[in-house]
Design a protein around this nucleic acid. Structure first.
Lengths: 210, 210
DNA sequence: ACCTGAACACCGTTCAAGT
DNA sequence: ACCTGAACACCGTTCAAGT
């Protein structure tokens, strides 16, 4: 009983499924071979080694990310919408994004978004290095946020101990603050606040020129 | 020829050295045993397994991070100084910080800084949930930045291809922008710009209350 | 051109046996 | 109380041998 001819396409698809389901750590060559119904060594013929398989997976993810469609009437609104779209796109593919991150390909994944942002910065009147800096500030903000959020999600256990430690002198004459810092962060709101602050500052005339 | 009695302290110190030198991936139980001059299995008696060894390492790093000393005359300046201190402290211990990050203990590591920030927010007149939100916005900003920077450092190779892709329509009538985006980002400046924008916005009266 | 099993050099971990 | 070697079940990868 032999199976139909193996293709690198099939290897990639199955590998992507495993990563999405159980994370990159669960993608072992032997498990992949079992899943595909072939010998481990056949995979090597088609995709080289594990490293290049992961490279191909990442490449595919970058392509699949798709285009960005800015929405809104003002440059400010359209920039914010791009940042938000990026934010949720990244959040929907946590494991694959982590792999893109590990491989340092985050920038290339961001290229379409970057071009959209450049367009909007131009519309807002920014040019040259100032515009470039503004675009990058947005990117850093969004990527940084996603990374921090992922970090927090992976460890919901630590908050109690953090709560204990907030029985500090400061906490006593500001209980509302202590309560807020003991509980989980409202990351959605933090994202909005920080993003609005940044965009407003970037679009304010003459600020980024110092 | 027997060596002096093994202690868990010695195991931790040697393990920390290996991680600092070659990263967490290089810390294998067998290599650690060789380095210590004992059998692999002795380590298990002292520190449990690899996982709890890494836990202990991380715990130690968090403690060693030390205190934060705000500098400057205005709350704005002092908040910025705390953020900067955090930023460089994190950058000086990349591998160990990565482990703290992986284990989701970033928050606990940030506790002293958090308390310093709360103090400054109070000095600036912020209270309760507004102050808590402001503190967290700063934290997210700094941590996010460090993570993005580390990601970029790990992959200096990708810029050429990014440069190629910047032969786009927009690039032609703004060559300065294309040049800026093709080259490496000035992360120090981006950090300053974003941080100043955020702090100014957070300390502006009545903004974070909507 | 494509697939295979055997073999190699690595892992982390357990456990009975030593002192 | 502390240390040990043998053994187990995993890895990724190579390579000669098959069709």
């Amino acid at each position: 009983m032999t199976r139909t001819a193996l293709t690198s396409e099939e290897v990639l698809t199955t590998a992507a499924r495993l990563v999405r389901a159980d994370g990159p750590g669960a993608l072992t060559m032997r498990r992949l071979a079992t899943e595909l119904g072939t010998a481990v060594t056949s995979i090597y013929w088609h995709v080289g080694n594990r490293e290049s398989l992961l490279d191909a997976l990442v490449e595919r993810t970058v392509r699949e990310m798709g285009e960005i469609h800015p929405a809104g009437d003002t440059p400010h609104a359209r920039i914010v919408s791009v940042a938000r779209a990026l934010h949720s796109a990244l959040r929907e593919r946590p494991q694959l994004i982590a792999m893109v991150h590990e491989r340092g390909l985050t920038e290339r994944m961001f290229l379409p978004a970057q071009q959209a942002l450049v367009h909007e910065m131009h519309a807002a009147g920014l040019r040259g290095e100032t515009a470039a800096e503004a675009v990058r500030a947005i990117q850093f903000q969004v990527v940084g946020f996603v990374l921090v959020e992922r970090n927090r999600e992976r460890s919901p256990e630590q908050h109690p101990s953090e709560g204990e430690l907030w029985d500090s002198p400061t906490a006593e004459h500001d209980p509302a603050l202590a309560r807020a810092l003991a509980g989980p962060a409202d990351t959605g709101r933090l994202f909005t606040v920080s993003l609005e602050a940044l965009v407003s500052s970037l679009l304010a005339p003459g600020v980024a020129d110092g």
